[in-house]
Amino acid sequence: MTPLHLWLRHEVRPTERRTPIVPGDARRLVERGVRLTVEESPQRIFPIEEYEAAGARVAPAGSWVSAPADTVVLGLKELPDEPARLTHRHVYFGHAYKRQPGAAELLRRFTAGGGALLDLEYLADGQGRRLAAFGFWAGYLGAALAVLQHRGRLTAPLRPTDKGALDETLLRAPGDPDFTALVIGALGRSGRGARTAFATAGVDPTCWDLAETRALDRRTLLDHEVMVNCVLATTPVPPFLRDTDLDAPARRLRTVSDVTCDVGSPLNVLPVYDRTTEWTEPVRRLHKDPPLDLIAIDNLPSLLPRESSIDFSASLLPQLLAFETGGAWGRCLDRYHRARRELGIVEGDAAGE
């Protein structure tokens, strides 16, 4: 059997500091016979020298486009716009299976080149439980930024840090007023992270999960001052916030942090905004009177790149070591083909058509 050849690519997004495989786990892959190529990347939290010391081959940033055809290209966030034909199997968060903007164009690129998307969001066991996720850190940071914003201590641009330093900023200071907070999706990975951040900040949030969202008490929701959404809907559900809710004069809600950032999807539970926020401007005012501020950053864990990468890599490593055995990866491939069928994309479709 030909050894698995993994190619860890450079991330094109300037604020993406994370990596799906840390140097220690890179060494474990190499020791188990995996061929590993790692692209140079100036923003990656771990320096290229650590990967080289682990036994990986080093390649220039962006050189995956000319990698051998059987290479599996590994990343986290979006691909560059070129090449138009994607010939490799790619493992990353594609955000293309719920009719998000650009989904059809991306899947046509794979179809045109004969490659495939193995989306990390759908890497799951037989019961649908995700096997590798950044959820805890996304929830933690979503709540942390909401606390800092509500207390008037969030500064821009955002910069990567470590958990110890961030926790110091979350501690309640003299004069900080009490406020009410709500975590929706409190029992999942992201919800646990959000609850942890609130606990560090000295805030005891209301916690909602499936039971509460099935029979949504909208008045109670709007009566909280801070809300963190950790729900990633997979089937249509009534939205948690509507445009009419923003005009409600009795609304106490002032800060919303959307960890899920499902903007553009018909399954979005917060259809009150149409674009995410950025590290340079992390907060957008959705409504002036009464005020409502939004935080919606779609790579939150990159603000704690070392901690989040170490956790994610530890969970992804056993899946990569079992890459050729089917199972979860086979289900990923099936989901890719199903997504193409749902969009009417068939073999022979050219990218951009």
Rank of each mutant, 00 (worst) to 15 (best):
D178R: 12
D178F: 01
F179E: 05
F179Q: 02
F179R: 03
T180N: 07
A181D: 01
A181L: 06
L182Q: 08
L182K: 03
L182F: 05
V183C: 13
V183A: 09
V183Y: 03
I184M: 10
I184F: 06
I184R: 02
I184S: 05
I184K: 02
G185R: 08
G185D: 09
G185S: 07
A186N: 11
A186V: 07
A186M: 06
L187E: 08
L187Q: 12
G188K: 12
R189I: 07
R189E: 13
S190T: 14
S190H: 03
G191R: 08
G191S: 12
G191P: 06
G191I: 10
R192E: 05
R192S: 04
G193Y: 00
G193I: 06
G193W: 09
A194G: 02
A194M: 09
A194W: 04
R195H: 09
R195Y: 01
R195T: 02
T196K: 15
T196Y: 10
A197V: 00
A197R: 01
A197K: 03
A197H: 01
F198I: 00
F198T: 01
F198N: 04
F198R: 03
A199I: 00
A201P: 02
G202R: 03
G202F: 03
G202H: 07
G202L: 04
G202K: 02
V203I: 15
D204T: 15
D204P: 01
D204N: 11
D204Q: 15
D204R: 14
P205T: 05
T206F: 01
T206H: 10
W208V: 00
W208K: 02
D209T: 12
D209Y: 11
D209G: 08
L210D: 14
L210Y: 07
L210P: 08
L210E: 14
A211F: 12
A211H: 13
A211P: 03
E212V: 02
E212D: 13
E212S: 12
E212W: 09
E212R: 11
T213Y: 15
T213I: 14
R214K: 08
R214C: 05
R214N: 08
A215Y: 08
A215F: 10
L216N: 06
L216T: 09
L216M: 08
L216W: 12
D217H: 13
D217T: 10
D217C: 05
D217P: 02
D217S: 10
D217I: 14
R218K: 15
R218H: 14
R218Q: 13
R219Y: 04
R219D: 13
R219G: 03
T220R: 15
T220A: 15
L221T: 07
L221V: 13
L222H: 06
D223M: 10
H224S: 05
H224T: 04
E225Q: 15
E225R: 14
V226S: 03
V228Q: 02
N229F: 11
N229Y: 07
N229K: 03
C230W: 09
V231S: 05
V231F: 10
L232K: 12
L232G: 11
A233P: 08
A233N: 11
T234P: 01
T234V: 10
T235M: 09
T235V: 15
T235I: 12
T235G: 06
P236E: 11
P236W: 11
V237N: 04
V237G: 03
P238F: 07
P238S: 12
P238R: 08
P238W: 10
P239H: 13
P239N: 07
P239Q: 09
F240S: 01
F240T: 00
